[in-house]
Design a protein around this nucleic acid. Structure first.
Lengths: 218, 218
DNA sequence: TTCATGTATTCTGTATTCATAATTCAAGGT
DNA sequence: ACCTTGAATTATGAATACAGAATACATGAA
């Protein structure tokens, strides 16, 4: 094992995203830096650095003099994010080597069928889903594109915990992953790309009804 | 006029991008925070905040214990960035209302023909080009997408000053803008999207020979 | 001469302190 | 009763201080 020596700001960022997944933070709620820094056991400096990073990713908003707040959720923004990720992941697939995609198709199919039990931990399900997408895109030679996908997906984390515990949605997700993998196995990248787009668009529609109306309208 | 009260970190970020356009910084060169903060007349705190933001946008790299450095340029990365921007701008165009696009086509055409003199300031040429693209995409309802485009383009600023002073390139750029605008005027968004993609891809090819070999290979 | 090792210096990463903008609350006036 | 105004409080934005890692340098041994 290697001794991990990473900047606090990165560890803090990840911890905050984890808490976001757990639904710890009320969207739209202002963040008190002193209190949060105390909870995390760090000083305000690296905390603020993490907050600034997250603001850049769209997870937080910052207003002059009023500090940071978790950006309120809205179905509009969620749809926007889905469109972006759909576009980016499709692009990544198009830029990948078709031969390599075909090569890893069986593995993708296996993983898609091996979807975790609906009773499994929510976090495990999400991890499995991320894993699948990461494997799918991993061969894309455009590294910046992959980084960008990761960053945009971080901005979607505010929404993922809203979908918790819907068995039918899970099954459909697994189904769609299978379909994508089968297209790849058949060597039809264009069809796989289209299916991937559908995967995000349908996910968007499935989710959109579950997003509470913006508490901003008050 | 309103009194401007913006965080120092934002002003610093812009100043650094400006200096980048001027080619002030040697790519790959380490940044000395104390020296740079002194030059800018600010303390290290807001400077570091700006550096972290720029690192998130891919303009800078950060290594634990060694601070920040301007990410070295490489034709590989430039191609990656062009692919991304081509994809994002195309997507933005597809998501825009075709009717509105057609409506503003004449304005786009006018601006494209009104390209600045080749003898004009490099900064003015770049400004004009950005302006054109901003106008083209401005009607896209996906705000997050537009923010993302802006952010990715910031990461390309390390490359723009390399193209300075090439008349033929300028002419071709203007030509391509005209073609895109004409497709829009004809109501053919698909053709305009394809032309926009070509605009970035050809820009990539025009530029790629001018990028010095990575000083990293040493 | 060259390589290794110990030491000094430099600079980053983090904590702490300070100044000022924003908010809250209470008192006074309409 | 309600609105305005101003003081007190709170929290952010920025500057400074501090500790430790990384680098450079010099000294000594092979």
């Amino acid at each position: 094992m290697g001794i991990q020596r990473r900047p606090l700001r990165e560890q803090i960022r990840e911890e905050l995203l984890l808490r976001l997944d757990r639904g710890d933070f009320a969207a739209g709620k202002d963040i008190n830096e002193v209190v949060l820094a105390g909870e995390l056991g760090v000083s305000r400096t690296p905390l603020r650095e993490a907050l600034i990073t997250l603001a850049g990713e769209g997870v937080l908003e910052s207003n002059q003099g009023r500090g940071f707040r978790f950006a309120p959720v809205s179905s509009k923004e969620f749809r926007d994010l889905c469109e972006i990720v759909a576009g980016l992941e499709s692009l990544a697939l198009e830029l990948s080597d078709p031969a390599e995609l075909q090569e890893m198709a069986p593995e993708l199919l296996r993983l898609a069928r091996d979807f975790p039990d609906p009773v499994a931990e929510q976090s495990e399900i999400e991890w499995h889903d991320d894993e699948w997408h990461d494997l799918l895109l991993g061969r894309c030679p455009n590294e910046r594109l992959l980084d960008l996908v990761t960053s945009v997906k971080a901005g979607m984390r505010r929404y993922t915990h809203l979908i918790a515990g819907e068995d039918t949605l899970l099954e459909r997700e697994a189904e769609e992953h299978c379909r994508i993998a089968e297209h790849l196995r058949a060597g039809d990248v264009a069809a796989a790309t289209a299916a991937l787009r559908d995967n995000w668009i349908s996910g968007m529609e499935r989710m959109t009804s579950r997003i509470p109306v913006s508490p901003e309208s008050a």
